[in-house]
């Protein structure tokens, strides 16, 4: 890539903005800051960042409102900083248009991984990939073939759809609703239980240990994420 990616950090805590600026810059990103919601939206319009890191707990506007307003005229990837115990906050943010989230307090590696995953989608464009490779996992979309470390894996149609969706969004969170809607249709967006069973089968076939997953990570109450080690 030619010009460094620009990241907008919207957070009212100066300390948080400081360490984010330091670490993101050290990793080659250009950082712009905003201390509140309205300022953040304005800065987003002016600076045209490639990614926004947004804290939900802002003094002037509700974080969700900020997402909604940005989404009115831009689909810049947004990563949300959320508090741990509130699943509904995360899901709501994702539903409102955020792309991913990181739970406070977080380690910088986690955040960087999410940033990279979010930016990667942008770079690769929208055209459906023919073959996707994530670590040892290879997904061949047109041929409906999946292999792990060279070994073929036989999946049912639905299992394949799920894996395809996760792989296309590798490294990013995919909510239960999104997965259910995509594979079973809008009538089944509440049937999380189906999803559990299918993902369970999928994991088994991929040889993924749920206690120590290599491929599919579960985010309780929110959705699933395909693990992406390094970009």
């Amino acid at each position: 890539m030619s010009a460094p990616q620009r990241i907008l950090v919207v957070d009212d805590e100066p300390q948080i903005r400081k360490f984010l600026r330091i670490s993101l810059s050290a990793n080659g990103y250009e950082v712009v800051e905003a201390p509140a919601g309205e300022a953040g939206i304005a800065e987003c319009a002016v600076a045209q960042p490639n990614l926004v890191i947004l804290d939900l707990g802002l003094p002037d506007l509700d974080g969700h409102q900020v997402i909604a307003r940005i989404r009115e005229w831009s689909d810049v990837p947004i990563i949300v900083l959320s508090v741990r115990s509130n699943d509904s906050d995360k899901v709501q943010a994702l539903d409102n248009g955020a792309n991913d989230y990181v739970v406070k307090p977080f380690s910088i590696e986690e955040l960087l991984a999410r940033v990279r995953a979010a930016l990667r989608a942008r770079l690769q464009g929208v055209s459906p990939a023919a073959e996707m490779v994530v670590g040892e996992l290879v997904v061949d979309v047109p041929r409906h073939k999946v292999s792990v470390a060279g070994q073929d894996v036989k999946l049912t149609r639905k299992e394949f759809e799920l894996l395809k969706m996760l792989t296309q969004n590798a490294g990013r969170i995919v909510t239960h609703r999104q997965m259910l809607r995509e594979v079973w249709g809008p009538a089944h967006v509440e049937d999380v239980h189906y999803l559990r069973i299918y993902v369970g089968h999928l994991r088994q076939k991929l040889g993924d240990d749920p206690a120590n997953p290599q491929f599919i990570e579960s985010e309780p109450g929110v959705g699933y994420r395909l693990i992406l080690d390094a970009a």
């Binding site: 699943d87 999380v192 239980h193 559990r196 369970g200 240990d209 749920p210 206690a211 120590n212 997953p213 579960s218 309780p220 109450g221």
Partner: peptide, 13 residues
């Protein structure tokens, strides 16, 4: 807030 979960996931995390 209950969901159907695999115990291994929870313990693993």
């Amino acid at each position: 807030k209950r969901e159907w979960y695999d115990l291994r996931e929870v313990t693993g995390r």
